[in-house]
Design a protein around this nucleic acid. Structure first.
Length: 562
DNA sequence: GTAATTATTTC
DNA sequence: TTCGAAG
DNA sequence: CTTCGAAGAAATAATTAC
């Protein structure tokens, strides 16, 4: 298949806002593809090429300027192999070599193709259709039920393979896709809850006689899905990245459990010697460390295993997913203190489990949560996330307060009758965490892009200094309706004091109420703190900048670090 | 040696 | 994370 | 009412460029 056909389809998809039209356009393209190309084409249209991120970003692309070819000649396979080649370039001089190879690819591409390749590589296809849309198109193209395609996609985590299966083996083939120990599936997600009472009511139903719900601590770490098959262990993140080699302690824990074959779901989190959870930043620091990759005990084993970042976690499907058998030896060395890092006494990242998806040959996905929790209690009682079962909102509230007291993020309220809805952000799980509010001053604003082009969108936020000045503590563009965007654009434009690039500086007069989850240490901002998940609640027209919150108030939200 | 670039995770 | 569009 | 996509920040590590 010619790349031009794919690009034409992508352009047509971008040109319509109708989801069914998008689906039909993609379906027509998939039908036209050769059977062996279906997977590649599907992934291209979903903006997720098999090679993943290959070390090309906007900066690299900006330096590759090649006159477009007058006529299209590239095949899909040409693009695919070019991506393979670029991905294979590592080590000294690789960036130059990448640019060179990319330039050759671009020289053979028409203007439209070049544009598509750029968007693809940057990871922003912006056609209003990604994985889910393509999945629906797969169903339409090959005349198989949408639900079957989605299920296979969630269980395999692999759109290309799912598309190929649908094309070559149809409905029966899709039905044959099942949870496979060692291969990650899409994790179930929680939807946001207003507060604990609302969450309990939403999950259990309102009023008397409501069903009991599970209420569990919500830990501020990294989601992990742990697979064990005999002495093979694989650990995967929320995005199905393989982090087995970075979590020797988790591997060791998995190997200690009394059952040889299982899939469990949970969170990894560092804990201080005094049992307080580490800051998210510190947990991520540990997870980010790639020393100790693989099973070997050689602490300076170098990055021999897939030297390029992000590539050891490639989703090549059959990659070296799990080969971390004898990891106990590497555990002690790896968990050692990072230079300049926190707490030498910390024991490294530990798994906290809250679900079981498979155990000893039985898939539990379709079983009620109550049953899965019971299975977990038997499999790994010492590693469970603390939780209760209750029908009483007051009891749930008390448990939430306890979680916060212990330094955790909040709780997740779960329907005990619900199955494990892989890949869904359903109403069966509701997360509840406290919201902080701050009144901050708008110091500057950035021009919007995409559908916010023409508006002033991203706000630079400042807290009040003790001597009358303002200290920037973060930015946000969230929580703005189109109406509010229009209003703030006009108001801020009227206060413009100067511009640099896309940033419009304004007189610090407007006070905006910001909701946030908390604050974290920052090296970027002069106040030493940055807002976490800041979003606009409303403008405080009733307040002047002199009444905004102080930087010390912002700092007081910092959790005490380990 | 330091700065820039890219990629990764969380939300 | 939040919002808006689509169905 | 639900799903989906798009908008972006922050911190970190690895690697390359200068």
């Amino acid at each position: 298949m010619l790349l031009a056909e794919v690009v034409a389809a992508a352009d047509a998809v971008a040109a319509t806002t109708s989801r069914t039209a998008k689906r039909d356009l993609i379906a027509a393209l998939l039908r036209a593809a050769e059977p062996h190309e279906v997977g590649t084409v599907a992934r291209l249209l979903a903006g997720d090429p098999e090679q993943g991120r290959i070390g090309i970003g906007w900066a690299t692309l900006a330096r590759v300027e090649v006159a477009p070819a007058p006529a299209s000649s590239l095949a899909v396979a040409d693009l695919d192999s070019a991506l393979d080649e670029v991905a294979a370039l590592v080590g000294a001089g690789s960036a130059t070599a990448r640019r060179e190879r990319l330039g050759r690819l671009m020289a053979g591409a028409t203007a439209a193709e070049q544009f598509f390749i750029r968007r693809l590589l940057i990871g922003e296809l912006r056609q209003g259709a990604l994985e889910a849309a393509v999945a629906d198109a797969v169903a339409a193209a090959f005349d198989v039920p949408q639900a079957d395609v989605r299920r296979a996609l969630m269980l395999s985590g692999d759109l290309g393979r799912t598309a190929e299966v649908a094309r070559t083996r149809g409905r029966a083939g899709l039905a044959g896709v099942s949870l496979t120990v060692g291969r990650p599936l899409q994790p179930m997600l929680a939807s946001p809850g207003e507060d604990i009472g609302a969450a309990v009511a939403a999950v259990a139903g309102p009023g008397d006689g409501r069903a009991p719900v599970a209420v569990e601590w919500k830990l501020d770490g990294a989601r992990v899905q742990i697979h064990r098959d005999g002495d093979e262990v694989g650990v995967f993140t929320r995005n199905l990245n393989d982090v087995t080699g970075r979590l020797p302690g988790v591997v060791a824990t998995a190997l200690e459990l009394p059952v040889g074959r299982f899939v469990v779901d949970g969170e990894v989190l560092g804990v201080d010697p005094d049992a307080r959870p580490e800051l998210f930043q510190d947990t991520m620091r540990r997870l980010g460390r790639r020393s100790g990759a693989g099973a070997g005990a050689s602490p300076v084993g170098d990055s021999a295993a897939g030297s390029a970042p992000a590539r050891d976690a490639s989703r090549a499907g059959d990659s070296a997913a799990s080969r971390a058998g004898h990891s106990a030896a590497s555990r002690v060395g790896d968990a050692g203190p990072a230079p300049g890092g926190p707490a030498a006494g910390a024991v490294g990242l530990r798994p906290w489990l809250f679900d079981v998806l498979h155990i000893a040959g039985d898939d539990l996905l379709d079983r009620p949560l109550a049953e899965r929790r019971a299975a977990l209690a038997e499999l790994a009682p010492a590693h469970r996330v603390p939780g209760i079962v209750t029908a009483d909102a007051a009891e749930a509230d008390a448990f939430l307060r306890g979680a916060l007291q212990a330094g955790h993020e909040g709780v997740v309220v779960k329907d005990l009758a619900s199955p494990y809805a892989a890949g869904r952000r359903g109403a069966a799980w509701r997360k509840v965490k406290p919201v902080h509010l701050l009144d901050l001053v708008v110091l500057a604003v950035e021009e919007g892009s995409g559908r916010r082009r023409g508006w002033l969108s991203n706000l630079h936020l400042g807290a009040r200094d003790s001597d009358g000045g303002f200290v920037m503590v973060g930015k946000t563009f969230k929580g703005l309706t189109d109406e509010l965007l229009a209003w703030q654009s006009a108001e801020l434009l009227a206060r413009e004091t100067g511009r640099e690039r896309h940033v419009v500086h304004v007189r610090p007069e407007l006070v905006v109420e910001i909701a946030l989850d908390g604050v974290q240490r920052s090296t970027r901002y002069p106040g030493g703190v940055a807002l976490r998940f800041a979003r606009v609640r409303r403008y405080r027209s009733d307040k002047t900048a002199a009444e905004a919150d102080l930087i010390d108030t912002v700092r007081s939200l910092l959790p005490r670090s380990g």
